[in-house]
Design a protein around this nucleic acid. Structure first.
Lengths: 246, 246
DNA sequence: GAATTGGCTTGATATATGTCAAAATAGCCC
DNA sequence: GGGCTATTTTGACATATATCAAGCCAATTC
């Protein structure tokens, strides 16, 4: 494995690219080093792709679980629905991220996933993914890391919801989008929101009016420019400070 | 596998018991059906046990990740600490539950785990657990379910923190403890809290005074009896209703 | 181009929860 | 058992966010 690393880095890299341009499994395959054969099998796994328009469901609560999905382009929101009508947006997922992990526990989807724009996903049949990860330890470890990362992410949101004030929450939210933009090679200061104020509010445990007022306040303070769903961050460092004190 | 199920249930059950009384991996091994050999290898995996007194750390943020832990007796709280001094209790874990999943993502613990009473854990070296789950598909699937269940649990808390009021949160909390008591064969109406009002507050995103007032209010309504940390649920069905409307 | 629609902003007010402070209670050590 | 400390309860008051209600803006339709 290490040998592979040293002896043919270019070749391995080119295989990553091949696999990733083909199946778009940036998230799944990029950080692992695989042999030619392994890359090929990973490609085979995920040849089924599908497209979604704004508002389309990727899955709904109760749908039987068969696959995870790697978002190839576009974005989705996930939302849980409680019997009493309460609901909570639990995540906004974008290109390169894996969606559907919650369903493994019960073999049925616990939440719903809705496309927020025209989007494409690669389907990853979970049984096959498990079978392959039994044979490729680095893939196995990677899958575990993806799941663990989701746990850490959720716990971060628990911290946000449990102990931050409205403006701190919104600052954290914007900074998170900024960072994810950056990791996609997109401008970290030009943010195009794909979701409404209501959805942001649901995610952050706030009402839409509070979200709107927080945006306005940031604007007054010269932290951001707001033009409907186009947000420009004018002072990233000061926005970071917002989270601490405010 | 199904054959195994049908033909020698008693035998299989006895192996569960053997493995579980020995390594206390109720959570890990109980629901899976394994061959004699597989049970034996699972036992071998987890022979290292350790004990903790109230306040002892199982791990701290930044500690290198090597193992998961199955709680054999007692209970722990997990807590994340933010740079700015903010902190959030992310879970109260009891006997039979697996702790440490957050650390897989970065190979270092993201949160801290503190014993809330005298407790014992089985250490599960993760590399070995992965190796074994490569060979035993039902163990692999089970490990994935445990991780997914943690994701679902965290998202439930996000719903609680994002959209429930103080008394609804506390009702949900008590009902959760009640249910976990029941699943351990303990009375679902006699609850002994192992944590302070401050810790409950941190977990539920409330201040201790609010938690205390909610307890008092439940008491006035005849829902519970409160004697410091001994809670008796007098009206489980009405407590369930509390969550919906209130 | 007018009209309709849905989303967003802003203001006035209500309310749930936080904050500060004191008293009561429980647990603990000598 | 008595005194000590930490925890919990309770009260009075402050405040952040929700709620209710208009008005505004941008996009879409006719």
């Amino acid at each position: 494995m290490a040998l592979n690393d040293i002896m043919k880095p270019a070749l391995v890299a080119s295989h990553f690219r091949a696999a990733c341009s083909n199946c778009s499994l940036r998230e799944l395959c990029l950080p692992i080093d695989l042999s030619d054969d392994e890359v090929h099998r990973l490609e085979m796994l995920s040849y089924h792709k599908s497209s979604f328009s704004t508002g389309d469901y990727l899955y709904r609560p109760g749908d039987p679980f068969r696959s995870l999905y790697a978002i190839r382009s576009g974005s989705f929101k996930t939302r849980i629905l409680h019997e009493d009508g309460r609901e909570q947006v639990t995540g906004f997922l974008m290109s390169g991220e894996i969606i559907g992990l919650d369903a493994i526990s019960t073999d049925a989807h616990a939440c719903e996933a809705v496309a927020m724009e025209t989007s494409e996903v690669c389907e990853l049949p979970f049984a096959k993914l498990e079978a392959l990860s039994r044979e490729i330890p680095s893939l196995q470890r990677h899958l575990h890391k993806i799941m663990s990362r989701e746990i850490v992410r959720d716990q971060g949101i628990m911290l946000l919801l449990g102990s931050m004030r409205a403006e701190e929450r919104l600052a954290a939210f914007l900074l998170n989008l900024s960072q994810r933009n950056a990791s996609h090679g997109i401008s970290p200061t030009q943010i195009t929101l794909r979701m409404s104020r209501v959805e942001i509010g649901s995610y952050l445990g706030l009402k839409l009016e509070t979200v709107s007022r927080a945006f306005s306040h940031f604007h007054e303070d010269g932290l951001i420019r707001v033009k409907a769903r186009a947000i420009e961050i004018l002072a990233l460092p000061r926005l970071r400070e917002m989270m601490g004190k405010s």
